[in-house]
Design a protein around this nucleic acid. Structure first.
Length: 426
DNA sequence: TCTGGGGTCCTAGGACCC
DNA sequence: TCTGGGGTCCTAGGACCC
């Protein structure tokens, strides 16, 4: 089936992005087997692997220890999210020169609506080569570019173009291009859906595209229909129904932490919860967001994972309010004494602040907002470990909940200290 | 193999309302 | 009496992506 959309989309995807960034900081890594994500004996998974490491079967999401066995000579590098964000910004700036309609889909990939840019940049292939060269010149990094009349096809195409390539699916040839590809190449088809489709005898995108809608709906529900539409090369369902370039801001903000060793001690667990709440609160204030729903995530040693949520009548962005609710969820749901592998704190359901706050209470949140913003600025200046919730705040929390707080390691309120504590843990 | 951290979206059941 | 249907919100879990 052809796509008479008349649109032209680019999907730009950086090659081995995290590895490329690390190479900028340490050119000695170039041409070697590199694994980004942590050290070889740590709990954790591979965030990115260089093409040399991939030759040994190493790929992202693989446990670090497995990667070390497959490729013992690999160099293991800790991730540096701040570096990646900075480079991502530079990439975005380059892309914006080629189209006013740019949307970053993640830290290292973007969609460009290139419709109608022919007069400026010439035909799509020429524009893509120009973009490809500019990217290399300005960022010292390789990217791959997929060009097509829909975003799904552009995304699949950039993957086929890797590494360091440009590929254009000429309008009208979408079906022929997609048909032979493995079903796993479809965005949205992971391990589980792959198995389901295999059980139905569907192995290629072409076979999926040919299915009757009625049959797919019976087998996979509503979601199966948009999947089939995508297999036919049509942007359908969820984000694909929106326009490019009108980003909405985040829908949730969360932080989680996996312990190096499982923890069963309540004080230690609640101490970590407090830290996570502080990090989440800070991000909320950075974005100017107030959350109505708070989530606790808890993973036990055996990997059994639960999430528990609670919605507030009024949205909040304050550490102490978040902590109070999350700790209550924790105490109500943690099976006391059972060792915990991971804790997480999340916020969602963002809403405007205010509403019908009781007059008596109105001044208190405001004061805390000021204090926390001051703390945020100190953290900007001296680093994340420089400010902890002080005894003053702990007292307030205790007054409100009539419960004791975990030992806060004798830190003074709002004082600076060494920034080592939190380094290398992210 | 022994399984991160940050997200998005979907499903499904129950409560509640009209 | 034995029984509706739809809409929205909330919660829990899970698939998937980078």
């Amino acid at each position: 089936m052809s796509l008479p959309s008349g649109k032209t989309y680019f999907h730009v995807d950086m090659d081995a992005f995290f590895v490329s960034v690390e190479e900028l900081f340490d050119p000695g890594l170039k041409g070697k087997a590199v694994v980004v994500g942590g050290q070889r004996d740590e709990r954790g998974v591979v965030s990115a692997a260089s093409y040399e490491a991939r030759k040994f079967g190493v790929h992202s999401a693989m446990p670090l220890r497995t990667a070390a066995k497959l490729c013992p000579q690999a160099i293991f590098v800790n991730g540096h999210p701040d570096r990646y964000r900075e480079c991502s910004k530079r990439i975005y700036e380059v892309l914006c020169r080629f189209s006013p309609l740019v949307e970053m889909a993640s830290i290292d990939e973007a969609y460009l609506d290139m419709t109608g840019t022919e007069r400026l940049y010439g035909p799509p292939l020429r524009a893509a080569h120009e973009l490809h060269q500019t990217m290399k010149r300005e960022t010292q990094m390789n990217c791959s570019i997929g060009i097509a009349g829909s975003r799904v096809v552009a995304k699949i195409t950039s993957d086929q173009a890797k590494p360091n390539g440009v590929l254009w699916v000429v309008p009208g040839t979408e079906a022929a291009f997609l048909a032979p590809l493995d079903i796993r190449k479809m965005p949205g088809v992971g391990k589980v859906t792959e198995k389901k489709l295999h059980d139905l005898g569907i192995r290629t995108i072409g076979e999926l595209a040919q299915q009757q809608d009625k049959y797919l709906h019976e087998q996979l529900g509503e979601w199966g229909l948009s999947l089939a539409a995508k297999a036919r090369g049509e942007d359908a369902g969820g984000w694909y129904d929106t326009e490019i370039g009108e980003e909405d801001g985040p829908r949730s903000i969360s932080h989680e932490h996996t312990f190096n060793q499982d923890i069963a001690e309540q004080g230690e667990l609640e101490g970590m919860l407090l830290r996570l709440c502080e990090m989440v609160g800070r991000r909320l204030r950075e974005h100017g967001l107030h959350a109505r729903t708070l989530h606790l995530k808890l993973r036990y040693s055996d990997f059994r994972t639960i999430t528990r949520a609670h919605s507030l009548p009024q949205p909040t962005q304050l550490d102490n309010e978040i902590y109070r609710e999350v700790r209550a969820l924790f105490r109500a749901n943690w099976r006391s004494g059972h060792a915990v592998r991971l804790l997480g704190v999340g916020t969602a359901n963002f809403d405007e602040p205010g509403g019908q706050i009781g007059l008596l209470d109105a001044s208190t949140p405001h004061r805390w907002e000021k204090a926390l913003n001051a703390a945020d600025r100190l953290r900007d200046k001296f680093g994340d470990g420089s400010v902890r919730l002080g005894s003053g705040m702990r007292r307030v929390i205790r007054e409100k909940t009539h419960e004791a707080l975990p030992d806060a390691q004798g830190k003074k309120p709002f004082t600076t200290k060494d920034t080592k504590e939190h380094k290398g843990e992210s």
